[in-house]
Nucleic acid binder design. Structure first.
Lengths: 244, 244
DNA sequence: ATAAATAGTGGCTTAAAGCCACTAATGTGT
DNA sequence: ACACATTAGTGGCTTTAAGCCACTATTTAT
């Protein structure tokens, strides 16, 4: 290993291909709620390796197209769902010599939340090779690579965050009622919540804005709210506990 | 792009060098407490790029040596400090086209905590090119690459976790007093804590074991405790608040 | 008119933190 | 010997935010 006088000199002679690098991918768990159930988007792999197996959407970082890591995530998300402004959060990176048969690889895992009203955009994506799957049913899919573990990490992180942030607001349409918001929390947590405690918590947090409008239905009309800030979460100082 | 009959067939023809991959590194913020101050280990870069600048310890994944990503982290930690069983936690991955002049790169950031009593092992590492730096003083170092941002993420994650877990226990020697433990929390948080609330919290959590021994000093002797489980954190359901 | 359903609140209980003053046990200085 | 400084440890009240659950409110359906 020789030394160079200046960094320019060093860089001029630097060949990035001289050291083999691990394969680097981004994989994501894209969550939404359909039919009152938490669902995750899975794709059937069209090519080797793991051809024919279901997997999380994802793929290689494209060094030409993607300026940053999250560009890769947004690009993949747009390709699969047509949605381009979801809630997106990096979860963790998994890397080892054996998770991909092609060699040493690492994948940066993200989770995304897509609001119900954005979903229409990709409704016709329900082809044979891409599908929303209820989380309660993913165990019946033998996921490719280590995607079961990756999905589990994404799911756990998401659930944990629902307990101490306003994360579920990101799954709501522009205007919604407190009842609908509570239901969303409950679906993500897979656990019922206490109505009074929930409403007090939201109101104390001061993150919602009364639209002045009402949502009428088959019972008493409910006030419609809108999130004061989208994309940003409120952090509570206690976990949401729920009835025992 | 051609198709193959079987995965074996595909893999036989697969050349990992056909697609250039981003450079993949691991960088870490190794924290300890020296002189009642939170300190982080920095190394002065011996070679280009960023030669002569201070940086977080880290380096390329060695696909031969390292079976997993955390192997890389443990290897780097051992190389720099001699310590081989610290508390280690992955924080986040940073990747983009411009953070390293050699090209598209990503780094997986970890933070590590090293207990005071393990520190003796690397005391003579205080050479010119590797040094513990008080966190209050890192601003005076112009860190290489995007390491200022990486360090900030590590520091923030660590502080956040001190607020709702028993993380600081990992910085304690085998036996310690409640006063010493509280002081450690306070140094990591950079904020004083209420004695009674702190002790009640620890005692309610049931994570410490009374050794039956006392630590004598220049005042009333204090009970010595030992952690019931090392390496694992207790999660509290509220943040530690501290006096206002 | 009455029932069903969901919205929204009042008001008490509980869990865990804040506050702060008090007692306890040791070494130090005179 | 004895006061004093210093840190350990506790008692007991206040505060905050949650749990609990029954009560009222407003709509549509029958």
């Amino acid at each position: 290993m020789s030394t160079y006088k200046t960094e320019e000199d060093y860089l001029k002679h630097y060949d990035p291909r001289q050291y083999e690098q691990p394969l680097a991918t981004v994989d994501m768990a894209i969550f939404t709620i359909i039919d009152q159930q938490l669902q995750v988007l899975l794709v059937k792999r069209a090519m080797h390796p793991a051809q024919g197996k279901w997997a999380l959407p994802g793929g290689f970082i494209d060094m030409k197209q993607d300026k940053t890591l999250s560009d890769t995530a947004y690009r993949k998300l747009k390709e699969k769902t047509g949605v381009d402004s979801p809630y997106l959060e990096q979860v963790a990176t998994f890397g080892d010599a054996s998770r991909d048969p092609r060699g040493w690889s690492l994948t940066v895992a993200y989770f995304a939340l897509i609001a119900g009203d954005q979903l229409a955009l990709c409704a016709d994506n329900r082809s044979e090779d891409i599908s929303w799957v209820p989380l309660s049913n993913v165990d019946n899919f033998k996921l490719a690579f280590d995607h079961a573990r990756v999905l589990q990490a994404c799911h756990e992180r998401m659930k944990a965050k629902v307990q101490y942030t306003s994360l579920p607001v990101n799954l709501m349409p522009a205007e919604f009622t407190l009842g609908e918001l509570q239901k969303t929390f409950e679906i993500l947590l897979d656990s019922p919540l206490e109505k009074k405690a929930f409403r007090r918590r939201m109101s104390d947090a001061d993150i919602l804005e009364d639209t002045g409008e009402l949502k009428t239905g088959s019972s008493r009309p409910a006030k419609l709210y809108r999130a004061k800030l989208r994309g940003e979460n409120h952090y509570f100082s206690r976990l949401m506990e729920g009835p025992r």
